[in-house]
């Protein structure tokens, strides 16, 4: 695992950081004339988080036999937009400029549950995003892009911060219900604001 960490750290420093900066700049260009975009961010996956993910076990064996190639969010981007109906508008633009190998609407497993919501893509990394002489073998094949509303983003950021710290407390049953309750509130707020937008602003 030390070898993997060292290898990823080198990749992080030489390629992933500059790639995230270049990708964010490119996304900002694509959306420069678009309204109701709250933020566009891209970041490389931190070394500790990568190593944690690489150590995940499934049925007692490592989930990733080749984590350097199989973990696909080494560079991740997020576009946050105002209203629910904006998500498809943003989706149409990113699908115009990037080649997807995966598209997912992430929703809770059951209609009676509340939790994480978002539109996720795995896109091929554009060629020649970096003009420098970065070793091409350090450039990942793909990047992850998430499209979220403001409320989806707020819930997912807070949930991630509260729920998944290594060595921290895991939420109990009531606390999970509170998280689900907050997600339901965010879901409802999205619908209210989208309805208002459709009625008042268009």
């Amino acid at each position: 695992m030390n070898t993997l960490e060292a290898e990823y750290r080198q990749k992080f420093e030489l390629a992933l950081g500059p790639l995230a900066v270049a990708l964010e700049a490119q996304l900002r260009e694509y959306f420069s004339q678009e309204s109701r975009i709250d933020r566009i961010v891209a970041r490389p996956k931190g070394v500790k988080k990568f190593v944690q993910k690489a150590m995940i076990l499934e049925n007692g064996v490592l989930k990733y036999s080749e984590p350097m190639r199989q973990i696909q969010d080494q560079v991740g981007a997020r576009i946050v937009t105002f209203y629910l109906s904006d998500v498809e508008r943003v989706a149409a633009i990113v699908e115009k400029y990037y080649r997807p190998i995966e598209t997912r609407d992430v929703i809770p497993d059951s209609e009676s549950e509340f939790g994480y919501f978002g539109k996720h893509y795995i896109f091929l990394m554009p060629k020649n995003l970096l003009k420098s002489d970065v070793d091409k073998s350090l450039v990942p094949d793909v990047f992850e892009l998430q499209v979220k509303t403001l409320f989806q983003h707020a819930w997912s950021e807070a949930d991630h911060d509260l729920g998944y710290k290594p060595g921290g407390k895991m939420p109990g049953a009531d606390q999970k219900r509170l998280l689900a309750y907050a997600s339901a509130q965010a879901w409802g707020a999205d619908r209210v604001f989208d309805e208002l937008f459709q009625t008042l602003a268009k």
Binding site: P100, I101, T103, I122
Partner: peptide, 13 residues
């Protein structure tokens, strides 16, 4: 011509 495989019709890899 640089080409890439399409994703599945259901959006899967």
């Amino acid at each position: 011509i640089a080409i890439s495989f399409n994703q599945g019709e259901d959006g899967s890899q």
